[in-house]
């Protein structure tokens, strides 16, 4: 009887171990977003020059919305990649940065030093970040020309990833 109960316990634990294995085999950088395939959340923000930006202004061509900050080292790594991509896709894709928990003056200084790849939008109260389900920086959302979110990238982007994701959207 003892063996039977032990066997039953093991049978119960076995599925648990399977779930653990599945969880460990997943890429922790890939966080599923419920917004994939859905219209991007609306926002109404201003850039560093006080110019208003909203979702409507982005529609008509694919957009890349990147949440970043100067305190985020991976954001600094990917900055030149985004500068380069914004030049390569100049008239085809709209690149937009949303500042996550950072000071506009620091953003201005970094952009002046490392180059501009798009407007940097100030997000008071992190309303846009919360609406997009942002966990940290950097996180990048790829929108098609109709404003539908097609991909969310957690962590820095690479030139290859940008090309791969933007190609079908053009």
């Amino acid at each position: 009887m003892n063996r039977k109960i032990l066997l039953a316990g093991l049978l119960v634990i076995a599925p648990l171990l399977v779930f653990l294995g599945i969880g460990l085999s997943k890429n922790p950088m890939q966080i599923d977003s419920p917004l994939i395939g859905k219209p991007a959340p609306e926002f109404d923000l201003e850039d560093l020059d006080g110019q208003p930006w909203n979702l409507e202004r982005l529609q008509g061509r694919p957009a890349v919305i990147n949440f970043w900050a100067t305190w985020c080292q991976p954001c600094i790594w990917e900055h030149p990649i985004l500068v380069d991509a914004s030049r390569r896709y100049r008239d085809q894709v709209q690149f937009v940065g949303v500042i996550l928990h950072d000071e506009p003056d620091r953003i201005r200084a970094m952009v002046a030093q490392r180059g501009v790849w798009g407007p940097s939008l100030i997000d008071p109260g992190s309303t846009a970040a919360i609406a997009y389900g942002v966990y940290g920086a950097p996180e990048t959302y790829f929108l098609d020309k109709d404003g539908i979110i097609v991909h969310k990238q957690v962590g820095p982007v690479t030139p290859e990833l940008l090309d791969e994701l933007l190609a079908p959207l053009l």
Binding site: G125, S126, I130, Y135
Partner: peptide, 10 residues
């Protein structure tokens, strides 16, 4: 955290 404070405000 900044995010939690912002969410609580919302």
């Amino acid at each position: 955290s900044d995010t939690a404070v912002a969410m609580k405000a919302e």
